[in-house]
């Protein structure tokens, strides 16, 4: 269960109580300059070799910029297996995409990513986290704040006796925005549990691509802060904080590098609302 859910529920209660209103407004925001963004999510889908992997490098922009996606070109990207020393070189494909078809994923093994760009070397280290299988997917009619809605719930068995961290991703066909739900087993260690997705607009015929990803505790902390800062609203929102990823410029450790390098085992499913 995502804990900030509780605060979200409180806020919704609060606002549904009174004649509150929300409105899109023009706001002048500060500009912190463009920063390197590393989106390095190595996904090893159950039942595949996991050899095809890619990494995306981009630049951040000001919040209301017209072009939000600035590709970073001319970098070199390599990932090293810290146990064996094997190196996997990612080749530039254009548009900031770097990929390989020779990656070898191993559960619980530590990997280091090294990026050389613009004369600087960036490094990050992470361990490949395993994941349990999705056991079933259900759809439910739920009474939301604005009446009945359709929700999709994925179920899984949390392994006993160990701390596990999850990221569930829901990509609906009816919305440009995907859903990210981080979860840990703090409240339900060793039990069958679920993660629910409800974007308020799901209708019969819509499809949802679902994945359940195993993640490290460090990445869980990161993604939980990230998701709480994109979904929250109202007076119970947490003071926003700087999202610090794990990629460091070893030539200038004070440089702010956005994004994260992480490796996850993944179970995927597709579900159509009926």
């Amino acid at each position: 269960m995502k804990k900030s859910y509780i605060k979200t529920v409180l806020s919704c209660t609060l606002f549904s109580l009174f004649l509150s209103c929300t409105e899109t407004v023009d706001v002048t925001v500060p500009n912190g300059g463009d920063r390197l963004v590393v989106e390095a999510s190595i996904m090893w889908e159950k039942g595949t070799s996991g050899q095809d992997q890619s990494v995306k490098l981009s630049k951040s922009t000001e919040f209301f910029a017209s072009d939000l996606d600035i590709a970073v070109t001319g970098a070199s990207v390599v990932i090293i297996n810290n146990d064996t020393g094997d190196q996997f070189v990612f080749d530039e494909q254009g548009n900031g995409i770097y990929s390989t078809d020779g990656f070898i994923p191993v559960i619980d093994v530590s990997y280091t990513m090294e990026i050389i760009y613009d004369g600087n070397t960036y490094q990050a280290t992470e361990t490949l986290a395993s994941v349990t299988e999705i056991t079933s997917i259900e759809q439910n009619e739920v009474s939301g704040f604005d009446g009945d809605e359709i929700s999709v719930t994925l179920f899984y068995e949390d392994p006993q006796g160990e701390r596990n961290f999850y990221l569930a991703e829901f990509i609906p066909s009816n919305s440009p925005l995907l859903g990210l739900e981080p979860s840990d087993d703090e409240f339900y260690n060793g039990n069958e549990t679920f993660i629910e997705y409800d974007d308020g607009n799901l209708a019969v015929g819509d499809a949802v691509d679902i994945s359940l990803q195993g993640i490290s505790q460090n990445f869980f902390n990161y993604i939980e802060l990230l998701t709480s800062q994109i979904g929250e609203d109202g007076p119970f929102q947490t003071t926003p904080a700087r999202l610090k990823g794990n990629c460091i410029n070893i030539n200038d450790p004070d440089e702010e590098v956005l994004g994260y390098f992480r490796l996850s085992e993944v179970d995927r499913a597709n579900f159509v609302i009926n």
């Binding site: 500009n31 990230l226 926003p240 994260y260």
Partner: peptide
């Protein structure tokens, strides 16, 4: 307030 945004996992993420 956010001082920028970056693209991550298909979403636009504000930076603070």
């Amino acid at each position: 307030y956010p001082n920028g945004q970056f693209q991550y996992n298909g979403l636009s993420i504000p930076t603070y």
